[in-house]
Structure formats: structure tokens, C-alpha cells
Design a protein around this nucleic acid. Structure first.
Lengths: 220, 220
DNA sequence: TATCTCAGTTTTGTATACAAAAGTTAAAGG
DNA sequence: CCTTTAACTTTTGTATACAAAACTGAGATA
């Protein structure tokens, strides 16, 4: 399976690596809200200079994960720990727009490509292979983001997805959930291939919303 | 050269100023899609070093406005010129979520604050003062973004809003449009103050959507 | 006691130097 | 004539040095 828009494999510059490390550390709570990300200290820890560190921090700042007070320092944002529910609200909204755009722009070749992905997902779901199914699940969503043909939308979705670091996968591996998700993905595909923007947006929104509430309810 | 003077502002750092300058230049089309943002060349033009320039570029990269190929350069993204329609789709989706969150979190003091803003907008609308009305319009939307109490959402909305640089204001100064917008804002306020998340989200979405199509239809 | 001042410390902001990768061109070899 | 290769050029990536703003705290003063 080749990923059409894989940007990360070859570009492993220091600034990218440290960006990912810092982001993960913030999201998993290793750096707690309010924590001072001391430039020199971090540079020493990572054994790098401040230049790539600064570049990574500007990206985190742009995402709202850290707040920088000039000449004082960068601090982990107080409301990084927005609930999974809120993050997924935004995700469902933006991915919904992606589906809408994809429905208006998709061509026949791309419909085949999307269908191929769906078929593969169906196969893995019937084989009860949760790992592969979830992998195809992620790719299906990513493909829609690509088919929106709007780099801004794509970037936003990737940024939001990187917040997912929890034990989500175990929950979603529930067989009934996999079947439900498959049916919803089939609906999404149908709407996009029919070039129905409203239908596509709604299908994605309700899918993400339902799947999120499922996770929340299962957790407790 | 012509940019150098503006950097004298002491309150903001060079990296922030140059970020805004570059962003505006990209949005208004001064730097066209595919244009190579040469680090050293730009640094010379702005009469600054490459460090703050790099930091600004990482923010633009994070936003998807430029694409950086390692050791090659940063280039204005090919699809920066997404139509005003697409930008506003995303905006309506994210501001819709902001309204939803605001409806679930708002307290009585904040309802008064929002009402105050609305009343001021009513006054200016009745006085037929388009400039002030639009100013309050912007503030009303911003206040909702703040009341969502989610820094991520706030940041996204601010980032999207910065794309607005067109002759939008003239179109929106149409008296009928101002009246229509006022009624819609009243509905939005009502929904949020009633703590109705669905109603609030729908009200914002349809308001932004209608107002956008009005602009598009008026333009031609 | 409370507040103001000012020097000392901390921390980031910016500039510059150098290293390394990618791109380019032209000559050599088939 | 086309392809390969290797030197050369261009451009970014990273490290380091220094400047400047913000914070801190002790001592003076009202």
C-alpha cells in the first residue's frame, strides 16, 4: 500500500524531529500546562542548537499548543488538555468539509481509488483483522482529505489527527464497532461517488461523532 | 527595502512582523503560487537575519501557505488561492463549532457581555453606520470564538480570518445585508444564550454560508 | 512597613559563520 | 547523440556568539 502524499519519510531534519517530540510530550502530558519550555535547556537535552528548536516552537505556537511571551519564554498552553470530545468536534467539522469538497471535485479515477480502499477495508473487516482494518480506516479518511484538493484543509486535518495518541485503537477494535464503521464508510463512499456534497458532509460528521461518543461511553 | 521601515515597531518582534508581511504578500498574490521564497534574498530585502525569517516561515508552513522542500527551499503553495467559497466553508464549520462550545460553556455574565455587543450592533445598524456595524460584527464573531474557551479553536478562527483581505466590506455595507445580518446575529445570540448547542452551530453556519454566497452573487 | 530604584541575572531575540545537501553544468565515454 | 559523472554553484540546515528585554532581589527611602 503506497501513501500518495507521504511527506515525512525522507524529511527528517532536526527541527521536524524535535517538533514531533515536543508535541507528543505535550499531548501525553509529560510537559504539563504552564510548563516553561526553556530554549537553552531543551537544546542541551536534545544536544542540538537553538535554531531548529526555535523553528519547532514556532510551529507549536501556530498550532496553539504553546504560548510565547516575548523575551520571557514559551509555555505549554493552559488548555492543551481540551477533551477528546472537543478535539473530535473540530475534527468532524473539518473532515466534513473535506468530504464536501471531495464530493464536488472527485473524478472517476479517484472514485475507483477510493472504492479500492473501501473494498480492502471490507475484506479486513470480514477477516476480523482489526489492525489492518484500522490502518485502512485511517487511510480512507486521509484519502478524503487529499481528494478535497485543498492544502489548507489537508494540513488542518493532519494537525488534528496528530492529537490522537490514546488507547483509542483498542476500543475501536470491538467487532461490532468495526462493522458499524464499515457501514458508515460505505455510506460516505456512496455520497462522495454520487457527488452529493451535503450527503458526504453529513455522513462524515455523523460517523466521526458517533464513533467518538462510542469511545467515550466505552471508556467509563 | 520598502519593508524595512515597518519593522521599527518595538512592541512586536521581527519574526512576527515578517510573518504578517509575508502572509499578506502571499494572500494578495504579490508572491504567486510556486514562487520561491529565497531565505537570504528575503533577509536582505527586509534587512534582517535569517533566524527570525526561518521562524516566520515555519509558521506559514504550519498553516499550509508555503511548502518547504529540505535543502531546496520554501515555495508558495500551489493552492493558496483557494476560492473565497472554500475558505468560508472551513470558516463556517469551525466558527460553528465555536458557537456550539460557547453555548455549552457560557455563564450569565458572558451572556450579558455578548448581549451588550449585539445591542451596540443594533444601534449602529439602525443608525446606518456601516463602518461601525461591521466592526461590531467582527467583534461579535471574535467574542464567540473567545467564549468557546478552547485555544485551539480560537487560533484556527483567527488564522482563517486573516485570509479576509478582499473588498468584502463594501459589499457587506449594503443596507439590506446589514439588516439581514443583524437578524441572524440576533438568532445566534438567542441560541447561545438559551444554551442550545445544535441551534447555535446551525445559526452560525447558515449565517456565514448565506453571507458568503451573498458576496459571491453580488460580485458578478 | 511598603515602595521605589538599580544593578545583576536569566532568558529570549537576532546576527553571522560554517556545514551539508540538492541542483546544475559541462566534459567524457559509450 | 545520449548518458554518466564529477566538479561547481546555490540554497538551506545547524551551531554559536552576542544583544536586549524582562525578571529578581537587596538596599535605600518615605
Amino acid at each position: 500500500m503506497e501513501f500518495a502524499m507521504d511527506i515525512s519519510s525522507k524529511t527528517r531534519s532536526v527541527r521536524d524531529v524535535v517538533y514531533e517530540k515536543l508535541k507528543e510530550a505535550i499531548i501525553v502530558g509529560e510537559y504539563k500546562p504552564g510548563f516553561h519550555l526553556n530554549e537553552r535547556q531543551l537544546a542541551e537535552q536534545f544536544m542540538i542548537s537553538t535554531t531548529p528548536l526555535k523553528e519547532a516552537m514556532r510551529r507549536l505556537e501556530q498550532e496553539g499548543l504553546i504560548i510565547t511571551r516575548p523575551r520571557v519564554g514559551s509555555f505549554v498552553s493552559d488548555d492543551v488538555m481540551v477533551s477528546i470530545e472537543e478535539i473530535n468536534l473540530i475534527r468532524s467539522a473539518v473532515e466534513g468539509i473535506a468530504a464536501r469538497l471531495a464530493a464536488t471535485k472527485i473524478n472517476d479515477d479517484e472514485i475507483s481509488q477510493l472504492e479500492e480502499t473501501l473494498k480492502e477495508m471490507e475484506r479486513y473487516t470480514k477477516e476480523r483483522n482489526p489492525e489492518k482494518t484500522l490502518e485502512m480506516n485511517a487511510y480512507f479518511h486521509k484519502l478524503i482529505a487529499i481528494l478535497a484538493k485543498n492544502n489548507y484543509v489537508y494540513k488542518q486535518i493532519e494537525a488534528i489527527r496528530s492529537f490522537d495518541l490514546g488507547p483509542k485503537n483498542k476500543i475501536l477494535s470491538n467487532p461490532e464497532e468495526l462493522d458499524r464503521a464499515l457501514r458508515e464508510h460505505q455510506l460516505i463512499f456512496k455520497m462522495i461517488s454520487m457527488r452529493d456534497p451535503d450527503g458526504a458532509e453529513n455522513a462524515v460528521r455523523s460517523h466521526i461523532h458517533r464513533s467518538t461518543t462510542f469511545i467515550l461511553n466505552t471508556k467509563k
